[in-house]
C-alpha cells in the first residue's frame, strides 16, 4: 500500500470539498474492493475520503412503493432489514448472498454500484428492478448508469446518495458461484415490474451487467421457467476464463433464469 492522506468527513458537503481539494482523491465506501486494490499497489490515490462518517448516507426507507437504501448501508443491513425482506425479498436475499459475513458487514450498496464490478450482485438487482441511482446532483435510471466494466455514468467527483428500488410484483435472483472467488459466474435477476418483466445478468457480459430482451418478451408472453430455460444468449458477448467458457456461461444463463422464474413464483 502506498501512502495517502486520509479524510473522514461527516457530511456529503465536506466529502465533496475534500475530494475537490485533493490531487487525485478517491471516495472510500466499504473498501471491499478499494482496500485490496491498495494493498496490491494497483492504485495510488493521493487522498482517501472515507464516507463511513457520513450518517446521512446510511439507512433504509420504504415509501411510495419503493425501497430506498442509503449509499453507505451495508449488505448485512439490507439482508436483515425486515422492511426489505417484506417489500422486495429477492433484494434482501441477494444482499445476504454477497461475499461472506465479513464482507457483508463492511461492504455497501453505494460502493458496489459505483464500482460496477462485472461479477457483483447489486448491479443485476438495479437493472432488473429498474432502480434509480440518486447522486449529489441528479437521478439516473439503472439502464443509463452502468456503462461498461468497472465504468458508470458517474462523474469523477459525483457521489451516490442512495438507490431506490420500485417494488416488483415478484422477483428472484439466482447466482451460480465462481467456485474459487464465489463472485457470480452467472447471476440472473428476474422481476415482474410495473413496466413488464425485466431480466438482468451479471458475472458474464464482456461489458458488464446486461438485460436480456429475448427473455423479457418471452416472460411477458408466459411467466414460466420453461419460457426462458434453454433460451440461448449469444456466447459471443460473454466472458471466457478458466472457470467458465462463454458457451458454458451462455448455457448457465438459461438455467439460472429458469430457476429464478421458478423461485419468484
Amino acid at each position: 500500500m502506498y501512502d495517502f492522506a486520509y479524510h473522514k468527513p461527516s457530511s456529503v458537503a465536506d466529502a465533496m470539498a475534500a475530494l475537490k481539494a485533493a490531487d487525485d482523491g478517491k471516495f472510500l465506501a466499504g473498501g471491499m474492493t478499494m482496500i485490496p486494490t491498495l494493498k496490491q499497489r494497483l492504485a495510488q490515490p493521493s487522498d482517501l475520503i472515507d464516507l463511513s462518517g457520513v450518517g446521512d448516507l446510511v439507512g433504509i426507507t420504504v415509501s411510495g412503493g419503493a425501497v430506498t437504501i442509503g449509499a453507505m448501508t451495508t449488505h448485512a443491513a439490507v439482508a436483515t432489514s425486515t422492511d426489505v425482506q417484506s417489500a422486495i425479498p429477492a433484494l434482501a436475499a441477494l444482499a445476504g448472498g454477497i461475499g461472506d459475513p465479513q464482507v457483508r458487514n463492511r461492504g455497501t450498496i453505494g460502493g458496489s454500484v459505483a464500482n460496477n464490478d462485472p461479477a457483483a450482485d447489486y448491479p443485476a438487482a438495479c437493472l432488473a428492478l429498474g432502480a434509480t441511482i440518486k447522486t449529489d446532483r441528479r437521478e439516473m435510471a439503472a439502464d443509463d448508469f452502468f456503462t461498461d466494466l468497472f465504468e458508470t455514468a458517474l462523474a469523477d467527483d459525483e457521489i451516490i446518495l442512495s438507490v431506490s428500488f420500485p417494488k416488483p410484483s415478484k422477483a428472484a435472483y439466482q447466482k451460480f458461484d465462481n467456485p474459487a472467488s464465489r463472485y457470480a459466474l452467472v447471476g440472473v435477476f428476474v422481476a415482474q415490474t410495473a413496466g413488464g418483466p425485466r431480466v438482468a445478468v451479471t458475472g458474464s457480459g464482456q461489458n458488464g451487467v446486461f438485460r436480456v430482451p429475448g427473455m423479457e418478451s418471452a416472460l411477458a408472453s408466459s411467466w414460466s421457467a420453461d419460457a426462458v430455460k434453454g433460451m440461448a444468449v449469444d456466447a459471443g458477448t460473454l466472458n471466457s476464463d478458466i472457470h467458465a467458457s462463454a458457451e458454458y456461461r451462455a448455457h448457465l444463463i438459461g438455467v439460472m433464469a429458469g430457476r429464478a422464474v421458478t423461485a419468484a413464483g
Binding site: P179, A180, S181, Y183, I242
Partner: peptide
C-alpha cells in the same frame, strides 16, 4: 473436485490467488 494449478503457455500462473485457486 476443486483444486487445480493452471499456468498459461507463457508460464504465468493463472491460479495465483484465492480468486482463481479453489480451496
Amino acid at each position: 473436485l476443486l483444486e487445480g494449478c493452471v499456468y498459461d503457455d507463457n508460464g504465468q500462473l493463472l491460479t495465483g490467488s484465492y480468486m482463481d485457486y479453489t480451496m
